[in-house]
Design a protein around this nucleic acid. Sequence first.
DNA 1: CGTATCCGATACGCATCCGTATCGTAGACG
DNA 2: CGTCTACGATACGGATGCGTATCGGATACG
Lengths: 249, 249
Amino acid sequence: MRIGYVNVSSTTVYPFGGSAVSVEAREPVRSARRDATRERVLDAAREVFAERGVFGATVEEICDRAGFTRGAFYSNFADKDDVLEALIEREHARLVAYLDAHLDLVVGEPAPSGAGWAGGQGGLDGPEAAGLLGAMVERILASVPGDRLLSLVQTELEIHAIRQPAASRAFLDADARFRARISTFIERGIALLGRELTVDAGTVADAAVGVVERSVRRALISGGDDPDAMAREVLPALILAVSRPATAD
Amino acid sequence: MRIGYVNVSSTTVYPFGGSAVSVEAREPVRSARRDATRERVLDAAREVFAERGVFGATVEEICDRAGFTRGAFYSNFADKDDVLEALIEREHARLVAYLDAHLDLVVGEPAPSGAGWAGGQGGLDGPEAAGLLGAMVERILASVPGDRLLSLVQTELEIHAIRQPAASRAFLDADARFRARISTFIERGIALLGRELTVDAGTVADAAVGVVERSVRRALISGGDDPDAMAREVLPALILAVSRPATAD
DNA sequence: CGTATCCGATACGCATCCGTATCGTAGACG
DNA sequence: CGTCTACGATACGGATGCGTATCGGATACG
């Protein structure tokens, strides 16, 4: 097993041809060619994982899809878990970047009613707030990028993490960061409406993600055209229900 | 492949020793011994599926757990999918029976406040209704039987059904019936409070199940002691938020 | 108590997928 | 333009899990 890329801090020894090489040259072997290969394999892995599931995916199929043989694969990754880890890292980074960008959008733009988000000192209540929350939820859902099937993988990995906690550190870390993002997302959105949460933001985030995930699954099973239909209908009411007009604190 | 149990309507020919056998005697071969074996295998399958996942489970391990060899397995089931189907059938029947029994309980007993569920002609509102809903949710959650890990399998199968719809008819059928149960469950509970839903009951059921499932997963990952903590906190507010005092119709 | 049949155990071949070891070549570099 | 290394292709051995075919003991029945 020779992997020239990952685990710089491991015991892997890189073969250096030259005579004198400084110690800090022990950097990962980055060549443009290698980077391109890794990206293509990761792209293929994302597709195959989404279609077949993490367990059902084979290294062979990933390689076929990427246009490589297994030799290339094992030259770049240790095994299937290793690609999975790299993929989680990459996709998570992309998702967070996306969310951050769109959070700014949501926060920065005026409300659909044209009067700005926060309605006054006491905070919005009732149908008004529900409408604005609906618009916010709408924007967030619309902003989530990429293949809906990836949502399945997310759930699948969560289940896997329960069964094999040790083998899932990478996922659990990424998941914790993701959850933190969603939480602040919700808190800031709620604050913009002049309201405050009555339960922990993480709890709301968990519930919201659960609703969205199942919304996607339901739509995919029933052949519905809009994967977020259920979430769209329920989420605003849910978030409104676990918040109240902010007390002047 | 010789299976003397399932698929009575298939082309399987049963070996009858006697000379003259009436056509309607072509019933499944039920012996007490065979039934017991099937049950033991199903019990083992439930454990293994829950621990390893449907994909990760092997026929070998199921047999080991049941105290049989693979010979016994293939004498009773066609393959892994076949046990899975039988297991879904059995567990679903049990769950529905459980729910029905406890629905009667919830409906029949007086409210914790002692004044009966429905508060009056206009229906309950605000904190009152929330409190009663909390009690209802509490009872339902407490009544769901069995291993929490089975909730993972439920989710897993849902995902599998998306990827292999043809191979998942049994699950999809059971799931549709389950969803219908939950829906009437919610509708009746809401009606008892003198309220009515503002969205489709199936939608509420989907959202609720999504919340419960993720609640369980969150707790299992974080090592929380109460698998339903998140659901308990969020569900009453959610259901309240998608309902309103009933109009005198 | 003897016999026929049911049913689980044993043994086998097969397919799939994995990970490694080796090879050949394209591309970097002097 | 020649050399050498990086990197992907090829080839191999091995493990695992599946499904079938056959065997032998338990059980029901006369």
